[in-house]
Design a protein around this nucleic acid. Structure first.
Length: 494
DNA sequence: TCTGGGGTCCTCCCCCTG
DNA sequence: TCTGCAGGGGGAGGACCC
């Protein structure tokens, strides 16, 4: 393996928002500033998607169970994620990068690479470029970000991690070894707990240790791909270009139920709603899929997947429902089920209608998995309490996808963090809910300063569920139903 | 009151085909 | 026609990332 030709200037930038979801909450809700905030699922099986730095100081990490996080930090405010708001802030952050480069590669909602090779640094040199970029992103989005720069994506990403919170780090080529070699291997992209443990067994803890290992040792320990990748990484060999787009390979949806499902009938009854959610995502990408995979996670946390492939990619809803049902049939349900998922893969860009020699699919045909109520509005099968009857005395515990529509706040839909409006008190957000149906609402926005909290009864008072505000203070338009935040439905952002 | 949800990529293994 | 082998494709599971 030979060294690639690398650029001579640290002109690749990696911009990463700090505790992104929590920072957006603090930006929009003045009473949360300087206080511990946890964003994540509030149900019994929720986990932390993002924790503010104040919460991190108490030992909270993202991906830990919300129950443990609350124990570690009882004074924290817990809110459900509001993806529409985060998406709007994300667009501002990306805009700061696009002002400086045509080559911007978003990695997730809160981080991106940019190739600044065309930028001519001023008197401040590359650190000045990084500081300008950081300041501009903060100015546009109003949330803290960190910027790392290096001559490769590898170094830029590690540099932004070193810059957190709210800083910049520029690693010049001549300083790369001093920067990389002392790092623990666990901080490298692609080294998780399992790989780290395997490396530890051969005495590798730092990048310097890693550099001392021959290629064949690394491929033996970690496999061909990971081994040769780490061999290059240990030497700073990374010449990957900043790529603006990446092809999507799959689309899916999964849901963890608040209580386990028992028996095939109960599991099968939940399938259409999950397929619908996955289908809505597939549809948004304008694609057709050839392979449908059903995923089941049992109470003991073991996971089984079964796939069914069609002769050709199809965008036909009924055919995909039917394939998902067949895939689920292949799963032996030996234990209670905590999670059900469906993924579409083998995507083709243009929806290709499946040739049906027997005539067009009839969604109402006997035995068809696509009952008439699934044929229209995506997510209709997900309406809590409607559609499939799971055969339980507590249907809410099984609802696969919460769908919150704007309008009069329903007690069932109230969750901490949601935006509401009251005819007298104005705009606020739900701080907490109580078993008797009353909700505590704090009336404040980014523009008002900290507001006061009032207990309200949505059954008797007009409390309206409204959309989130964007960074400019304007209410965001309503997105697709399946993108509404659901209890327990969380994502990254740290 | 352990352990979400969206993905990508890799490895292993089995089956089919030439 | 049968057998053995190699390679490709696809399914299953797992590691990893945010």
């Amino acid at each position: 393996m030979t060294a690639p030709r690398l650029r001579t200037e640290p002109s690749i930038a990696h911009l990463d928002a700090d505790a992104f979801f929590a920072s957006v909450e603090q930006a929009q809700r003045p009473s949360l500033r300087g206080r511990p905030v946890l964003v994540g699922g509030t149900g019994p099986r929720g986990v932390v998607a993002a924790a503010s730095y104040e919460a991190r100081a108490m030992g909270v990490r993202s991906a830990m169970s919300m129950a443990s996080a609350r124990r570690a930090c009882p004074q924290a405010t817990v809110v459900v994620p509001r993806f529409d708001a985060y998406t709007a802030y994300s667009a501002r952050i990306m805009a700061a990068l696009r002002e400086r480069s045509d080559a911007v590669e978003p990695l997730s909602i809160d981080e991106a690479f940019a190739d600044l090779g065309a930028v001519r640094p001023g008197p401040g040199g590359w650190p000045g470029v990084a500081r300008d970029l950081r300041e501009r992103a903060v100015e546009l989005a109003g949330v803290p970000v960190s910027v790392g720069m290096g001559r490769s994506k590898l170094v830029a990403k590690l540099a932004s991690a070193a810059a957190k919170p709210a800083g910049v780090v520029v690693v010049a080529p001549e300083d790369e070894d001093a920067f990389l070699l002392p790092m623990p291997v666990r901080s490298l992209w692609g080294v998780g707990p399992v790989s780290a443990e395997r490396l530890e067994k051969i005495g590798v803890r730092t990048v310097e240790d890693l550099r001392g290992q021959p290629l064949d040792t690394l491929t033996m320990v970690l496999g061909d791909a990971a081994g040769s990748n780490l061999f290059r990484v240990a030497r700073g060999w990374d010449d990957r270009p900043v790529a603006e787009t990446r092809e999507r390979k799959s689309a899916g949806a999964e849901h963890t139920f608040e209580r386990d499902l028992h028996g095939r009938a109960e599991v099968a009854a939940q399938l259409p709603a999950v397929v619908d959610q996955a289908y809505a995502r597939l549809e948004r990408h304008g694609g057709a899929a050839r392979t449908v995979t059903a995923k089941v996670r049992f109470a003991g946390f073991s996971t089984v997947t079964r796939a069914v492939s069609l002769p050709s990619p199809t965008a036909d809803r009924a055919a995909l429902h039917e394939a998902a049902a067949r895939a689920l049939d292949l799963v032996e349900l030996t234990e209670p089920v905590r999670l059900l998922g469906v993924a579409f893969s083998g995507l083709s860009e243009h929806a290709q209608l499946m040739l049906d020699l027997a005539g067009p699919a009839d969604p109402a045909a006997p035995g068809s998995p696509a009952a008439p109520d699934l044929g229209g509005d995506p997510g209709a099968g997900a309406d809590p309490g409607a559609g499939a009857d799971p055969g339980t005395d507590d249907p809410d515990a099984l609802r696969p996808v919460a769908r919150r529509r704007r309008g009069r706040l329903r007690v069932d839909d109230a969750a901490p963090g949601l935006d509401v409006r009251h005819p007298v008190h104005g705009r606020g957000w739900v701080v907490r809910t109580r078993d008797d149906g009353r909700v505590a609402v704090r009336f404040e926005t980014a523009a008002t300063g900290p507001g006061r909290q009032i207990w309200l009864d949505p059954a008797t008072e007009e409390v309206e569920l409204v959309g989130a505000l964007g960074p400019d203070g304007a209410e965001l338009p309503e997105g697709p139903a399946e993108e509404q935040p659901a209890p327990g439905r969380v994502s990254g952002g740290g």
